[in-house]
Design a protein around this nucleic acid. Structure first.
Length: 327
DNA sequence: CGAATTTGACCAGCGC
DNA sequence: GCGCTGGTCAAATTCG
């Protein structure tokens, strides 16, 4: 039980699972300590629903501010250079080990659909934001679709994948969240409807990666699902984009589904964070270089970054969390 | 029959 | 420039 080594947990995790493609625009949460907690689906206060996170999508800015994420490149802390892979967390990334809670109730309880997609369950998440790129930051596909919607730009459909892609313009990505869930099923029920549009073999992994897209019209949220090659029981689900609609499950009246707040479309559900925050104190550390990623460790009192006086969401989240943790 | 999935091909980005 | 890999498209196929 080296829970207080959470700081190193994901470090270890990543080193051992170097294949997990944490891209330069992801945040990472690792509540996957839950293993021990997993049994407690009745975790008090755990109303974890990454659906909420997904639907509302994260308030990346809040997170960024809250954790003082001015991370910079080079993150060997996570991915040992030794594995021969390129660093998978790059500039602007953040990785937080939120070793608390209750992912077990996440998918299952979250959907309220009665579909215990993840009986076992531990969940982690990640994401990242590219400030100011939300608008311009459309994926090539989005651009393509925009072009499509806007009318034919002359691009003939005779050739697939021969869509008009702007050259010289880097493909921009939506903010992403990656959830690591211990589950036997690949496609976790999260309250949304997804259509699979692709599957690819993943390098260094015997398990393919599946690509899904939200079936809701005008919703460009995508997700990738893959298994950790190191631990096949772990499913890595990466969400990209923000839902522009409510979860169907929510509409069905599931009280567990956290619908996005109209006033805060980008709201990162406090519940999510709450349930992911480690019960004990947090300790934020940064990679040796003083930049790169932050590590949350159960150790010292809340760091200044988290004692934020005015971090909006987190302010709501953290205090309440500590409130709970002290009971 | 419509929706969802499968699957091979294509393209962009990146490293060498 | 070339090769590799990730991401996406879309026709074909399967499913409900």
């Amino acid at each position: 039980m080296s829970d207080n080594r959470d700081l190193y947990h994901h470090d270890h995790f990543f080193k051992s699972r170097g294949s997990f493609p944490i891209h330069d625009d992801q945040y990472l949460f690792f509540p996957d300590r839950l293993g021990g907690v997993s049994g407690s689906s009745d975790f008090p206060g755990v109303d974890l629903s990454f659906t909420g996170c997904l639907s509302g999508s994260a308030d990346y800015h809040v997170l960024e501010r809250a954790f003082d994420l001015s991370c910079s490149p080079s993150s060997d802390s996570f991915f040992g250079p030794g594995d021969g892979r390129k660093p998978q967390i790059a500039a602007g990334d953040m990785a937080i080990d939120l070793s608390a809670a209750a992912a077990s109730s996440c998918a299952a309880g979250g959907t309220g659909s009665g579909t215990p997609a993840t009986p076992n369950s531990s969940m982690s998440s990640s994401s990242t934001e590219i400030p100011g790129e939300e608008d311009s930051g459309r994926s090539k596909k989005d651009q393509i679709e925009l072009g499509k919607d806007a009318g034919d730009d002359g691009g003939d459909k005779s050739k697939k994948a021969s869509k008009p892609r702007k050259k010289g313009e880097k493909r921009q990505r939506e903010p992403r969240f990656a959830f690591m869930t211990k589950s036997e099923v690949d496609h976790l029920e999260d309250g949304y409807r997804w259509r699979k549009y692709g599957q690819k073999a993943v390098k260094n992994s015997p398990y393919p990666r599946s690509y899904y897209r939200c079936t809701a019209p005008k919703c460009s949220v995508k997700k990738r699902v893959e298994r950790s090659y190191e631990d096949p029981s772990i499913v890595i689900t990466t969400y990209e984009g923000q839902h522009t609609h409510q979860s169907p499950a929510t509409l069905r009246g599931s009280s567990h589904i956290l619908a996005p707040s109209p006033s805060m479309p980008g709201l990162f559900r406090s519940e999510l964070l709450l349930n992911h925050l480690p019960p004990p104190h947090l300790d934020v550390q940064q990679s040796e270089a003083g930049h790169g990623h932050m590590y949350l460790q159960n150790q010292s009192p809340l760091p200044p970054q988290l004692q934020l006086p005015d971090y909006g969401l987190l302010q709501d989240i953290i205090p309440s969390f500590f409130h709970n943790s002290q009971q």
